[in-house]
Design a protein around this nucleic acid. Structure first.
Length: 225
DNA sequence: TGGTGATCATAC
DNA sequence: GTATGATCACCA
């Protein structure tokens, strides 16, 4: 199969999502003639990229939504054997400089989370990578309560950062969002503002969604009620 | 044992 | 280094 063209509509996108639902990663890889790695240690983004190819995501490594025309961001969710979110979800890099006056609605977190296509995927380590199946993907946008908490978290973090306290932030902080390193290794540096108000070199960090939060999204979507 | 801090591949 | 895609791996 060739790399697919971007879907023209939400309907077309969801049709493609339904087609990969229930398939194993081996089946999807075979269709695009990709080898299946032994494990994800050196291919951490492999599943995400495999799904992108099948659905026709178009942004590449640009700072754009995966489905530009539709304004939709694609995220895979690795699931434990109990079908709970296994890992946190990376959202975007934390702006450490020139962020004075930055408003929530202009933030990368707000933009990325406005419309997300979630694709749950089995990630039980007992299951061979090739045998893991793709779940039922679905479109999601935060509800008002979720937006409020995300905004509060973001504003709290950005205040600390503007006060030069970025290095005092740990992943324990934040209700739905958290800030953790996002870098090639612990030696990587970027420019930020120190406690003295001067520029300083510090570790690049990213915003992540806690599994507590993504599990709420999954429960709401798949609960039978 | 699970969550935090660290890390991996790749394009530019 | 920063953007994309994330999971690894150690230790409290």
């Amino acid at each position: 199969m060739q790399k697919r063209s971007p879907p023209d509509s939400e309907h077309e996108l969801l049709s493609r999502v339904n087609k990969i639902s229930g398939q194993t990663l081996a089946q999807l890889a075979a269709e695009v003639h990709w080898p299946v790695p032994a494990d994800l240690t050196r291919d951490k983004g492999w599943i995400g990229q495999l799904i992108e190819v099948h659905l026709g995501a178009s942004a590449g490594n640009l700072s754009e939504p995966d489905f530009q025309k539709l304004g939709i961001e694609l995220k895979t969710i690795p699931l434990t054997a109990k079908h709970q979110a296994k890992e946190t979800t990376y959202v975007c890099t934390v702006p450490l400089l020139n962020n004075i006056g930055l408003q929530w609605w202009d933030s990368c977190v707000y933009k990325k989370l406005s419309t997300v296509l979630w694709i749950p995927i089995e990630a039980d380590p007992q299951l061979a990578l090739a045998e893991r199946k793709v779940g039922s993907g679905f479109l999601w946008s935060p509800d008002k309560e979720q937006w409020d908490i995300l905004q509060t978290d973001w504003e709290d973090f950005m205040e600390l950062i503007s006060l030069g306290e970025v290095e005092s932030i740990t992943a324990h902080q934040g209700e739905y969002l958290q800030i953790r390193p996002k870098a090639a290794n612990a030696s990587a540096v970027t420019t930020g503002i120190g406690i003295d108000g001067l520029r300083m070199q510090t570790l690049p960090r990213g915003f992540y969604l806690r599994t507590l939060f993504t599990n709420k999204i999954l429960q709401k979507r798949f609960s039978r009620d």
